[in-house]
């Protein structure tokens, strides 16, 4: 196992803070995943991890490698962009699948959906 590179003080503290913030936000997301009572509420919880949790940890990695190698290391941006593009797609597919399964079993959870424009009738 390679040793940690010696970083200047400001960089080390910045990397440490970003890492801790990212890990704690991701943990909060999974706590939400275990705590919220219904599936449609639980689907919001992992987005905490995919938006800010991942962003903080990847920024920490970017700062660490950029400072220790003395050149900009930006390839973590790829993961960040990839995660922000793909999570909405997977969550959307999952939510639709859950809605479909609920409807197939006869209880339509979205039947009492609030209509945005009052008085307008939009059938499903």
């Amino acid at each position: 196992m390679n040793a940690l590179h010696a970083l200047p003080e400001w960089a080390a503290i910045l990397v440490a803070l970003c890492l801790l913030a990212g890990a704690l936000i991701t943990l909060a997301g999974t706590i939400g995943l275990t705590r919220f009572p219904t599936f449609y509420q639980r689907i919001h919880a992992p987005t905490l991890g995919t938006s800010f949790g991942a962003a903080f940890i990847l920024v920490a990695s970017m700062i660490y490698f950029s400072v220790s190698e003395a050149r900009p290391v930006l390839h973590e941006l790829l993961i960040l962009i990839f995660v922000t593009i793909t999570t909405p797609i997977t969550l959307m597919l999952l939510a639709r699948a859950a809605l479909y399964r609920d409807r197939a079993e006869g209880h339509d959870v979205a039947a009492d959906a609030v209509e945005a424009e009052r008085g307008e009738t939009t059938g499903h």
Binding site: A3, A6, L7, P8, E9, A12, I13, V15, A16, L19
Partner: peptide, 10 residues
């Protein structure tokens, strides 16, 4: 000093 902070945080 800085590397202990960092390894602790990691």
């Amino acid at each position: 000093m800085t590397s202990t902070i960092l390894s602790l945080a990691i």
